[in-house]
Design a protein around this nucleic acid. Structure first.
Lengths: 193, 193
DNA sequence: CGTCTATTTGAATGTACTCAAAAGCGGTGG
DNA sequence: CCACCGCTTTTGAGTACATTCAAATAGACG
């Protein structure tokens, strides 16, 4: 479980055994059952999490009750509501387990301590935030410039393994289309083959 | 010009006069005339910029030649293509001056040096990237959950001063609608008053 | 088997786009 | 000074993309 975390960190910065061990003690392991929440709307997000098992969806419910999924976080991904976490604001987002899942959680104060004790951690999170931002920027462009058909095809190509584990309801909420329309897209694409 | 930069930095971290002076020498001032480019598609983005005068639009041209504006950067904003800059990839984005403009540019190597010499700078950019990411995340949710009418109304409320300086063509490209449709939205809204 | 949820389907509707054309507006040169 | 040019904005008609609602079908799970 902690090895997955170490490998993930190693992609960005190198920590000695002692450094990693110390940093790792800041994390608390938590199990979340399917359909349970890591964070609900209105709560303040007190953690940043690293997923070691399962999948979470991070989403917003609009006033019509429609769900917009910002992203999915499966094994080896980080998950938080960065807005709520950094600004101590009530969350506008839900973080829900789509399968029985496990995460390693670090609190804000432990993260701040780590920044001070180990500047490499500051670099780690700067680089991670940059990467996340780049990914979201690309998604924003796609969402503005591509049709739902193309976004669906892209999604399957980009996340084939994730696609297998998600329902069409969830994929539709991620793509920003109704699930009925996604069904029609699927029919159309199947007919083309 | 440099005072604007200093005030901007001061919002996040405090630098002594000596620290700021040293950091400031890393920046090169550059003037860009209206309709000229700070960065074109295909080029590798070698800088991060701080706008001291004018406005830039950061946009993508899709294969149909349609423009999607990711954001506008006016005085006191930072501008770069973070994807191209951090990953040394050819830019998929253009950065174009919408007015006669001025920016302070810092190169990648000078930024890396600053990270090492002055850890506060690492913190500065981590916090800035977080803020930018939060803003984009909110925009993503809005773009998925709101109609064009509402996004236009929100835009005017959120950026009243920017709205004055932009054409409807530019606002339409930011909102992700055709300019003809934006014109119809404007008529509808004007009729309601 | 029964229940709950996911998926598909069709019809009617709404939202936004494309294309073509006209009107408005600001600047520039004769 | 005004005639013309280029660019922005508006308008309308026709079309495409996507939603809503209602209902049928299919799967998953205890």
């Amino acid at each position: 479980m902690y090895q997955l975390l170490r490998d993930n960190i190693e992609q960005h910065v190198h920590l000695s055994d002692a450094e990693f061990s110390h940093f790792a003690t800041s994390f608390e392991a938590k199990e979340i059952e399917k359909k349970q929440f890591l964070l609900r709307e209105g709560e303040i997000c007190r953690f940043e999490g690293f997923v070691t098992k399962g999948i979470f969806s991070v989403y917003h419910l609009d006033k019509n009750g429609d769900k917009q999924i910002l992203y999915f976080a499966h094994e080896n991904w980080w998950v938080t509501n960065i807005d709520s976490f950094t600004n101590n604001l009530p969350s506008q987002l839900f973080i829900e387990a789509l399968e029985d899942s496990e995460v390693l959680l670090i609190s804000k104060s432990d993260k701040e301590s780590a920044y001070i004790n180990l500047p490499k951690i500051e670099k780690l999170f700067r680089v991670m935030t940059q990467k996340t931002h780049v990914a979201l920027q690309r998604r924003m462009i796609d969402s503005l410039s591509k049709t739902a058909d193309q976004r669906y095809i892209d999604f399957i190509e980009k996340y084939p393994q994730l696609y297998q584990r998600l329902s069409n309801l969830q994929i539709a909420a991620y793509l920003g289309v109704s699930h009925e329309f996604l069904s029609k897209i699927r029919r159309k694409i199947a007919g083309q083959k």
